[in-house]
């Protein structure tokens, strides 16, 4: 993505020249407590690389999460973070963005957090189309609470809550997202191809609007073999590429030869691709840069001066005030 080529003044130039250069270590905090081998590590690395490469200021970046293994991610980012309550990562993130549109907002949530308890917020977040990047860490299981079936668990999966196997077909987060009005960016990646994950997250970050990235992720602890057939057979991953989508590097093209050209502006084709699971489609399914963002629609250009805030509060309080003579003063 190229910067806008506007001329800047000499003083601005000097100031930017001395901007601090960040290293990946500047964004790392603590040692992740995820199991070794967990796909969450791969996601963490990708976002840390993204922050470094985009030179995001740690104090201007927020990671918001709900509950679950996925939602521990903000703890390991040396930026602002908000480890929220179950299923409510999105409303918190929307509040942050509305109050502080200058911040870069990321949301990390899991298949249980987003697709079950938080499903209503998910639907409306797509419709609000606020400028943020959402990562759905989809390991198809509740891992933190030790193996209960989630809405995306495959049919027949035996778990602590479904000892005879699940009875329902898994929910497809991609088709759900593509079905909501105002959808503006939908992509899918797998945790074992870091190059594609990084590229897709980078494009999602640059997209102005709500970017939904589903990351198919292995749970090495509870479902160690579930995704092995796809992990070990490179023919079972379908790379989506297009000049307006993902560009496949020659090295990647040698490893993953199954490819399909897909124009991300084509919604019908996106829905068709989203419905398939084998081979797993990987890349950008849909993008529309023209959907307005809620924070822009509701932008109030007035300065938040003390007097303005006081006036607003007073008028709200007045609605509940019991006036001495029974009437509101004119």
């Amino acid at each position: 993505m190229t910067e806008q080529t506007e001329t800047i003044s000499a003083s601005e130039c000097l100031i930017r020249m001395y901007d601090e250069q960040h290293e990946i270590e500047d964004y790392q905090k603590g040692v992740p407590r995820w199991c070794s081998g967990c796909g969450d590590n791969s996601i963490l690395t990708a976002v840390q690389r993204l922050c470094r490469d985009e030179g995001l200021l740690p104090e201007k970046t927020v990671f918001v999460s709900g509950i679950g293994c996925s939602s521990r991610l903000p703890h390991y980012m040396n930026t602002y973070g908000f480890h929220g309550i179950h299923g409510r990562a999105l409303p918190v993130a929307e509040g942050v963005k509305l109050a502080r549109p200058d911040l870069t907002v990321f949301v990390n949530t899991g298949d249980g957090d987003c697709c079950s308890i938080g499903a209503a917020h998910w639907i409306h977040a797509i419709r609000y189309n606020m400028d943020m990047t959402m990562m759905l860490h989809d390991n198809q299981i509740y891992g933190l609470t030790k193996m209960q079936a989630s809405p995306t668990s495959p049919l027949g999966l035996k778990s602590n809550t479904t000892p005879h196997g699940t009875y329902l077909e898994a929910l497809n987060p991609l088709t759900v997202t593509l079905g909501v009005s105002n959808v503006s960016f939908v992509a899918q990646v797998v945790d074992w191809i870091p190059e594609v994950m990084y590229q897709v997250l980078s494009q999602a970050y640059h997209h102005k609007g709500f970017s939904f990235v589903r990351i198919i992720q292995r749970c090495t602890e509870w479902l160690p073999k579930l995704l092995d057939p796809w992990l070990h057979d490179r023919q079972r991953v379908l790379l989506l590429h297009h000049e307006n989508g993902l560009e496949i590097s020659p090295a990647l093209a040698k490893s993953y030869t199954k490819m399909r050209e897909h124009d991300p502006s084509n919604m019908n084709e996106a829905r068709e691709i989203a419905s398939a699971f084998d081979p797993i489609p990987v890349g950008i399914l849909y993008r529309n840069d023209d959907v307005p963002c809620y924070e822009d629609l509701r932008h109030d250009s007035r300065l938040r001066t003390n007097s303005l805030i006081q006036k607003g509060l007073e008028s709200e309080f007045d609605k509940f005030t019991i006036w001495a003579d029974g009437n509101e003063p004119a």
């Binding site: 990946i24 791969s42 963490l44």
Partner: peptide
């Protein structure tokens, strides 16, 4: 390295033999 998914398995096995590069791979 480019295909490494940063899962920590190897670096935990032997941190002297395996390490992460500037991209955490």
């Amino acid at each position: 390295s480019e295909r490494c998914s940063s899962c920590n398995e190897c670096v935990q096995l032997n941190g002297e033999m395996f390490a992460y590069n500037e991209n955490q791979q």
